[in-house]
Amino acid sequence: MEYREAKSGSKLYAYVMCFSVLALFLPRSLTDRLDHLVCGVLSPFWGGGRMVSLMVSEPLEGLDSSVDGADYAVLLEAWERARVTNENLRQLLAQQREVIGELSGLPQEFGMAGVNLILADVVGSDSSNSRRMRTLNQGTSDWGDRIRREAVVLSPLAGGNMNDVYSMCVVGRVSGPGPWTSTLQLLNDRGFRLGVLIVPAAERGENWVARGVLTGRSDGTISVNMVQCEYAVEVGDVVLAESRDFLPVPMLVGWISRCDWDDRTPVMWDIEVRAALDLESISRVAIVDMSGGNDRGTAEH
């Protein structure tokens, strides 16, 4: 009896291992559906866990701050928020100037007007430390194809208003919309790619635009590649996301934290970017919906 049980156990193990090896060859489009199914089933529990973690973390954050430190933190936060808003508004104005310059007689929508934001909560994360993915609690069952793959995702600074799009920053893209949940790929995930603009910091008073490709690295840092050395890039310059299909106006990603000449291609910069937000602590996001139309759970502006 024991021998028969042992043999059946070994057989079952052999079958499941064969299944796993076969599953390695399945296309991502199929296996991602299974992942989304599991996420959909578990998301109510994750949502409950998120509520618990928010209840625990919010009182703890105030424990070790003195009065002076708290005031300083509030001021710093307000200053950061203003800085973000300022950079985004600069791009809006530049676009307005361009349109007016073309002397169009048609009614114009500038910046993020005409774009809807689908508000979502971050309810879970990738169970592996190797990837920086988050699970959002909105899916195609409610929004249809308005949540698209590669859609840009924004998030406000801590304490920011979800209805004020110009106080938000780019934090990633939707990598896989599912029926009940969607997967957000953060900027610092190793597979992340996004076209970006680099503009000089406001205090430099210079006027040029460099283009590059923002890439997430496997150690969680963010770099920008393919920026030529003809541009006088410096630490503190602004990095903006540019994606005409998914973002009507460039939006802030962060600031340059380090720039050196690339070892492998000396005519290019090796740039490291500091994200404007702490990507590990985002809890509410807005998915940019370029399809138009009004609906519940969206923010208009």
């Binding site: 599991v38 578990l42 592996s128």
Partner: peptide, 17 residues
């Protein structure tokens, strides 16, 4: 772990097994 991460389906299962 495969079903709750972005890894290839089966990779962690084979590794753990």
């Amino acid at each position: 772990k495969d079903l709750t991460s972005s890894a290839i389906l089966g990779s962690y299962a084979v590794g753990f097994g």
